[in-house]
Design a protein around this nucleic acid. Structure first.
Lengths: 162, 162
DNA sequence: ACAAATCCTAGCTGTCCAGTCGGAAAACCG
DNA sequence: CGGTTTTCCGACTGGACAGCTAGGATTTGT
């Protein structure tokens, strides 16, 4: 398993916020209480609190405290890459424990003791890492929102007009 | 983290077998004792035994029992896709717990209760899964062996001829 | 017979996931 | 003001799994 339920729940949460905001600018959308999304997605509220905290620290959602408070997207859905969402929830995405991406794009593996003896596996994990990050970075929250809306629309019409 | 040390150690083991076989056909290569690769790669022998058992069940290596026994590749390195190696060690590769690939290429998510209500996240995990499997399936063991040999060769020449 | 190796099963220890709980602080509302 | 609704924060727990280790049975060269 690549990701835990943290990513699953967190992404669902973000999609829910995106759907409720609709086309209105995120700044002006009404904040959505966590209890609302918990009920809609059948997720435990107390657990969601931990996840949304991470999303807030990553500046992906903003919060409004007090009664009638809640959360909303910090940016328009189209500007939110799912890579950022997942990394906020799960930490830096890496295929292996020993795999770290340095700032300069260099890849380090804790198994290469010095610089000389390269892991044979480095080539493989680098490719996998590239595949994952490419998929995550290339998908925006807006895409998922549209996907969810489309699915909900077809579900509302049990018999398409044929 | 996508994979555990099972994949890391197992891949290293396969690369080691591939390197020692060299260009000789796998059938005729001398079997390599597990203790040898454990020493070469600084990995715990008793743990490797578990991993190699899985590789054998997946017909990726073949074993020779008794004194002077050991393991060798069951097929030429070029015909071994790393996807098979990793799946033998880690089980079916999936980004999420709720993500299963059915035989017919259909993708199921345990969260879509019926057929109608599709996970919003399905699109995302499908893309990630595609990225990972593409990277793994597109890399053969032979590539990693060549990579390791090349790295070892340059390490043996501290000063390239400049 | 002995030694070298693969094989098989069992267990053990730590870490982390998933989730709960209790309570603080902030903001709206009457 | 006081109560209600919400976000916020930390501690705790039960279970699962990763990462080994141990011990022995089995097979096979010498």
């Amino acid at each position: 398993m690549l990701f835990s339920t943290k990513a699953e729940y967190g992404v669902r949460l973000m999609v829910e916020l995106g759907r409720r905001a609709g086309t209105t600018a995120p700044e002006e959308a009404e904040p959505v209480a966590l209890a609302t999304v918990a009920e809609a997605e059948l997720l435990p509220l107390s657990y969601l609190e931990h996840l949304v905290a991470k999303l807030r620290q990553a500046d992906l959602v903003s919060s409004v405290r007090g009664a009638h408070g809640g959360y909303r997207l910090a940016k328009p859905a189209r500007e939110i890459a799912m890579l950022d969402v997942v990394e906020a929830l799960e930490g830096p995405v890496a295929p292996m424990e020993c795999f770290h991406t340095e700032r300069e794009g260099r890849v380090l593996c804790s198994h290469e003791v010095d610089g000389d003896r390269a892991c044979a596996t480095k080539l493989l994990w680098t490719r996998v890492h590239g595949g994952v990050t490419k998929a995550l970075a290339g998908t925006s929250l807006a895409e998922l929102v549209e996907f969810a809306d489309a699915a909900a629309a077809t579900a509302a019409l049990p018999e398409p007009v044929a």
